[in-house]
């Protein structure tokens, strides 16, 4: 194991006892805990919440080139706190990790950045909104936004325009993650239209498509017996969208949750058990890359299949993240994230 991976495991909370993916399980140590019936204040809640242990600004996009080739794009900034404090200098306990990726039908480009929060190398400000690590930036007023990332083998520069409202998951943004009551604050902007240029070893490619930005923060989102998750963000051709996740438990059972999003942004939340997700086929590394996803309440019974089976994020904490196609009762596209498969 290299130093950085060890560092990451240490910085991800409570590594020593955590069963959950990257230590996202277990106790709290002076950090704040999400409470039901939240009231959000914008734009301040778009910014960082250092009193919570973990937080992310997580953008995925399904893109299409002029020739019809599908692409996937990811821009993520994670915040992880060693203690519920901020401060200046190297010893400030806020650590930042950026992941950027571009997925083509044949390749998967990944890059990672790490930084400490006390020196200005990475951070998030709410007003004006800017999330950055090194030269990677996501900024704008949440109506129109710009986003860049670069790596030795790829780079991108994208513009985003919101075509709908923010969407709150669970009970008004309070998203329950286990039967024991672990929860996070969770809202999304799934209605971004995105356009820009991918710089790849294959050449520069102009692309357009849809982007989905997730905001989530918590201090203990997973229960002790939860080892990872499978997360789906699907956009159907009729304009409706689905956010669904399945949390894997050590006892072989799952905890599921879903949000059905109408084209106008109105939502219906579904509690544990309403959604089922069943693996159909795995790739060479035993990661399920074809799924059957069912939400009987909506007459949904679809097959979700990876565009590129090998969308493995070779980052310090590895996971699978890539674009998918949806067929069956509803057709569409989307993104799939799977953790806990190492």
């Amino acid at each position: 194991m290299n130093v950085k991976a060890l560092l990451l495991l240490c910085w991800m909370p409570c590594v020593a006892t955590a069963q959950g993916f990257a230590g996202l399980g277990t106790e709290v140590d002076g950090f704040s805990v999400p409470q039901p019936n939240p009231t959000f204040h914008f734009p301040s809640d778009h910014g960082a919440h250092p009193e919570y242990r973990i937080e992310w600004w997580y953008l995925t996009a399904n893109l299409t080139a002029a020739d019809g080739t599908p692409y996937g794009l990811q821009w993520t900034l994670f915040r992880s706190a060693l203690a519920p404090e901020t401060g200046a200098g190297w010893s400030a306990p806020q650590l930042w990790m950026g992941h950027a990726a571009v997925t083509t039908p044949d390749n998967h480009y990944v890059s990672e950045r790490l930084a400490r929060g006390g020196i200005g190398q990475a951070g998030v400000t709410a007003e004006p909104f800017e999330a950055w690590i090194d030269d990677w930036v996501l900024q704008g007023d949440w109506q129109t936004m710009q986003m860049t990332a670069s790596a030795p083998d790829f780079a991108y520069d994208m513009a985003l325009t919101a075509k709908g409202p923010l969407v709150f998951h669970g009970e008004g943004g309070y998203s329950v993650k286990s039967a024991a009551g672990q929860a996070s604050y969770y809202y999304s902007q799934p209605f971004f239209a995105i356009t820009g240029t991918l710089q790849l070893p294959e050449g520069d490619i102009a692309v357009t498509g849809n982007a989905w930005l997730d905001r989530e923060w918590s201090s203990q989102p997973l229960a002790d017996n939860q080892t990872g998750w499978d997360w789906f963000s699907l956009s159907f051709d009729d304009g409706a969208k689905l956010m669904g996740f399945r949390l894997q438990q050590t006892d072989g059972e799952n905890f599921t949750s879903a949000t059905w999003i109408m084209p106008d942004g109105t939502t219906t939340a579904y509690a544990d058990g309403a959604l089922t997700a069943t693996p159909l086929a795995t790739n060479a590394d035993d990661v399920p890359v074809r799924w059957r996803v069912e939400l009987p309440a909506r007459g949904l019974d679809v097959t979700v299949a990876a565009i590129n089976d090998n969308a493995w994020m070779t980052t310090s904490v590895p996971y699978w993240e890539g674009p998918v196609t949806v067929t069956g009762s509803h057709a569409g596209i989307g993104y799939l994230e799977m953790t806990g498969y190492e």
């Binding site: 130093v3 560092l7 910085w11 203690a83 200098g89 010893s91 306990p93 400490r116």
Partner: peptide, 13 residues
């Protein structure tokens, strides 16, 4: 990584 290494304390000064 060596025995006794605590990267939390390594990083937080």
């Amino acid at each position: 990584p060596q025995e006794g290494a605590d990267f939390g304390s390594f990083l937080t000064g």
